[in-house]
Computed example of a mutant assay.
Amino acid sequence: MTGEIQKGSITALIGPNGSGKSSLLSLLCGLTLPTTGQISLNDELLTEIKRSDLAKKLALLPQSNPVPATLTVSDLVTFGRHPHRPWYKKMAKEDKEIIDWAMIETGINSYSERLLTDLSGGELQRTWLAMVLAQNTDILMLDEPTSWLDISHQLSLLKIVRRLNQQYNKTIVWILHDLNQARQFSDRAILINEGQIVNQGNAKDVINAKDISNVYQTPVKMHSLDDLQILWPEEQV
């Protein structure tokens, strides 16, 4: 089955643990090669794009990252500019402007000189997001960006990503475990199970009670809450 990521949209990759979401994201980023089929980016085969050129087209925020003890927030965000300049070349005015912009957009500019080890989980995750944003690509790939965050920091990050999409037309592909958040903050969704695409399309259509119940093997119902439709597991006797 063929899948498609629409330009300028937010697409959620959803499915049970072990369904192949991270593997698919790795393929989309060019980190692993497909054993069958092909992946194209703007009508160009992904396997034919140089790694250095691909890094200027898409940026990946992995699921987990090491925290260097000696780096400050601004140090980490600066790494996002590496694909655009040789390691031996000093930062240009444009690099500094983009770094400042990334920190302002993610709300971390007020603590740019703090050590990474002094940050809360939410502050650290926004710093990683600023780093990939400083890469200044049209496409952002985010692997479980809200994992381990409390509900307040989850919503804060989701809103930041949504604003980046709407204001700068960034194409977002993210893996989210919270199906209600995926439904609310995504335009489209791809439902995956056992390495296969089960359904894809409008997020509110794909994330429905029937398909979710079948794929997750857990009975769920759709409930109305004010203007929202919320998935919730059925009570078990």
Rank of each mutant, 00 (worst) to 15 (best):
E4K: 15
G8R: 11
G8C: 13
A12K: 01
L13Q: 09
G15F: 10
P16G: 04
N17K: 06
S19F: 08
S23H: 10
L28A: 06
C29Y: 06
G30S: 09
G30P: 07
T32Y: 05
L33M: 10
P34S: 08
T36S: 14
L45T: 07
L46V: 05
E48L: 06
R51W: 02
K56V: 07
K57I: 06
K57N: 02
L58Q: 14
Q63Y: 11
S64Q: 12
P66T: 10
P68W: 13
L71M: 15
D75H: 15
R81G: 10
R81Y: 02
P83H: 10
H84Y: 14
R85S: 09
W87A: 13
W87D: 08
W87C: 06
K93G: 01
K93D: 14
I98G: 00
A102E: 07
M103P: 11
G107V: 02
N109E: 15
N109L: 12
Y111W: 08
E113P: 00
E113M: 11
R114N: 10
L115R: 15
S120I: 06
G122Y: 06
G122I: 00
E123L: 03
Q125P: 01
R126L: 06
R126T: 03
T127A: 13
A130H: 10
M131Q: 09
V132N: 06
V132M: 10
L133F: 04
A134T: 00
A134Y: 03
Q135C: 11
L140S: 05
L140H: 01
D143A: 07
T146S: 09
T146Q: 03
D150E: 13
H153Q: 14
Q154C: 02
K159N: 12
R162Y: 06
L164M: 04
N165V: 10
N165K: 12
Y168C: 02
Y168V: 04
K170L: 07
T171I: 11
V173T: 11
V173R: 00
L179P: 11
F185W: 12
F185T: 04
S186Q: 03
D187K: 05
E194R: 12
I197M: 13
N199P: 00
N199H: 14
N202A: 07
D205E: 15
I207M: 03
K210R: 10
K210G: 00
V215F: 08
P219T: 00
P219W: 03
V220I: 05
L225Q: 13
D227H: 14
Q229E: 03
P233H: 13
P233Y: 13
